[in-house]
Design a protein around this nucleic acid. Structure first.
Lengths: 139, 139
DNA sequence: GGTTAAATGCAACTTTCTTGCGGTAAGATA
DNA sequence: TATCTTACCGCAAGAAAGTTGCATTTAACC
């Protein structure tokens, strides 16, 4: 993705354009997978840990990234193609490879069934995490 | 649940019977909801933090509890009724209340649809986390 | 270019989780 | 029930993860 598009992307989310944010956003675009704070820390040693934390938080707060529930303890962030400004409450589907540990967004629109909850429960949205083997580890 | 039953439950999972384990297991039974390490730490100040960590880990390892993915960073553990010794690979469904934060297991057997994954991906199991209002907060 | 609010870097700190080890107690065996 | 073995416990220390405050720098706006 071109520099101008990244810049535009940040501005659309009301985020000030800085080196750190441009680099982090570009990295998410290129990697096409969910990244943890640790991933960013390893990749961008030129930026302070605190700055990376704050970058992730502001990205999340402004709807550019969303947090993916992970059982490993540390949070993982994903950049879904379907993550538009208005579509905050869509249902996320993610694939986590049990072999290599990579988490990816599943963009294939799948009609998630209307779950029959017990009486008086009200669903707002749901996270679906599919565990298994990704295309690389499955071959 | 009676003392003898708790004891039996531990033994069935090849776990040595100790005070800490009995108390923790009983607490899970009584609470009927998912508990975080923090919950246990607050509840059982008479036990060492490390002991509680190890208790959770051994319970998880031996299939008595399972880890529920949480986006808050800290892991949450649940004791499903359907968690038998043999049924390790069943699909979990959990409800997390966005108001009070309580996570519960949804025991209603719901047939989770066969998701159409991209080519070459292989699913083993899935975690489904439904967010919304629980019956207490919805009234 | 000058102004202002926001982002950054640094330091210090809190919280969360892990490891190692000596002492203790559960479970087995006789 | 006495003894033995091994797993569990508590304590201490430390590693990892995340937060806060503040002075400095810089993006965005005029």
């Amino acid at each position: 993705m071109k520099y101008s598009e990244l810049k535009q992307n940040l501005k659309e989310h009301k985020l000030r354009v800085t080196d750190c944010r441009m680099d982090v956003l570009e990295h998410f675009q290129q990697q096409k997978r969910a990244l943890s704070f640790r991933d960013l820390e390893d990749r961008f040693q030129e930026y302070d840990r605190v700055t990376l934390y704050r970058t992730l938080h502001s990205f999340e707060e402004n709807g550019l990234l969303h947090k993916i529930p992970g059982d490993s303890g540390s949070a993982v962030y994903g950049l879904c193609n379907s993550c538009g400004v208005e579509s905050h409450h869509h249902n996320h589907m993610h694939f986590k490879c049990t072999s290599c540990g990579v988490t990816e967004c599943i963009d294939t629109p799948i009609n998630i069934p209307s779950v029959s909850l017990p009486k008086d429960y009200k669903m707002s949205d749901m996270d679906v995490i599919i565990n298994g083997l990704c295309k690389l580890c499955n071959n």
